[in-house]
């Protein structure tokens, strides 16, 4: 079984996770830029973070046989801080990079005017750079937030097939299905979505344009939720082809619209270096 996790924050995970993911069949991941659990206070912290998403983290992933790509954006939560809003001015430099396969995560957190401005500007950048976008839907007031997000996306002029709307559930999937956008589901240990609920959604709404991710980060989360959902799909009557569609072909088709996905198999290798540094520890 081959798995592409289209949304996972590996910077927050350990090398044990990489090993377990590889063993479970994960061969490719996309790491969206997001907030770090604690607010940043300057543009420079963002650019150092973006540099790590493009440099150190893909190197680390490759040591474990996993291909790493990222999405770059100013996330909605930090868009509200005037000290960080100038990140929008440096984004073009990053959106031109080979490993950047989408603009994201963008969207709404509290639906403020600052979030409106950041969302509109970044949708315009996605159009300019011909990139797909990964749109986060708010945790609070999700249905209203999702509807408003879809309105803004429509007004931006970006084709709906280049948009992935993430963190959906039973109540928001229908809205997004009708919009023509791709539908993302984050399967978590306790909240958001479980494997069994995910299987029921796939049974009801079909596998087309659906992506399943673990969204694993520094919080309580599980980087193997993609594999566990795949197993639940098989137990629920789906065949191998349907699992491959959701777990591999759909994310490849979505991010492939960037024209930069260019996947090639990497073999685990702990002797390579990044910028002359390695993940080995002294004495080895």
């Amino acid at each position: 079984m081959r798995i592409f996790d289209p949304h996972i924050h590996m910077t927050s995970r350990t090398t044990d996770d990489y090993e377990a993911m590889y063993a479970a069949g994960v061969r490719a991941v996309v790491e969206p830029s997001f907030w770090l659990g604690q607010p940043r206070t300057s543009v420079d912290s963002f650019t150092d973070y973006f540099d790590a998403l493009l440099g150190w983290e893909p190197y680390r992933a490759a040591q474990f046989g996993i291909q790493h790509r990222c999405t770059i954006a100013l996330n909605p939560k930090e868009a509200n801080d005037p000290r960080c809003a100038a990140v929008l001015d440096v984004l073009p430099r990053y959106l031109a990079k080979d490993r950047v396969v989408a603009v994201g995560e963008i969207g709404y957190d509290s639906m403020t005017p600052e979030e409106d401005e950041a969302l509109a500007r970044q949708l315009a950048l996605a159009v300019e750079f011909e990139l797909p976008v990964l749109v986060h839907t708010p945790h609070r007031d999700k249905a209203v937030g999702t509807r408003r997000t879809l309105d803004v996306v429509r007004e931006s002029g970006i084709p709906p097939e280049r948009v992935l709307v993430d963190h959906l559930n039973e109540l928001t999937v229908g809205l997004v299905a009708d919009s023509g956008c791709w539908m993302g589901f984050s399967v978590y240990p306790d909240t958001k979505m479980s494997e069994d609920r995910m299987v029921r959604i796939l049974q009801e709404h079909g596998t087309g344009r659906k992506l399943v991710n673990s969204a694993a980060d520094w919080g309580r989360s599980d980087p193997l939720k993609t594999r566990k959902t795949a197993d639940a799909m098989l137990a629920g009557g789906f065949d191998d082809d349907a699992v491959d569609e959701v777990m591999w072909r759909n994310p490849v088709a979505f991010y492939g619209q960037s024209g930069r996905l260019d996947l090639e198999e990497v073999k685990p290798d702990d002797t390579a270096l990044f910028a002359g540094n390695s993940i080995r520890r002294g004495g080895e």
């Binding site: 430099r93 031109a96 080979d98 750079f129």
Partner: peptide
């Protein structure tokens, strides 16, 4: 600034 990274 956006052409230079795309060269590869």
């Amino acid at each position: 600034r956006t052409v230079f990274p795309a060269v590869g």
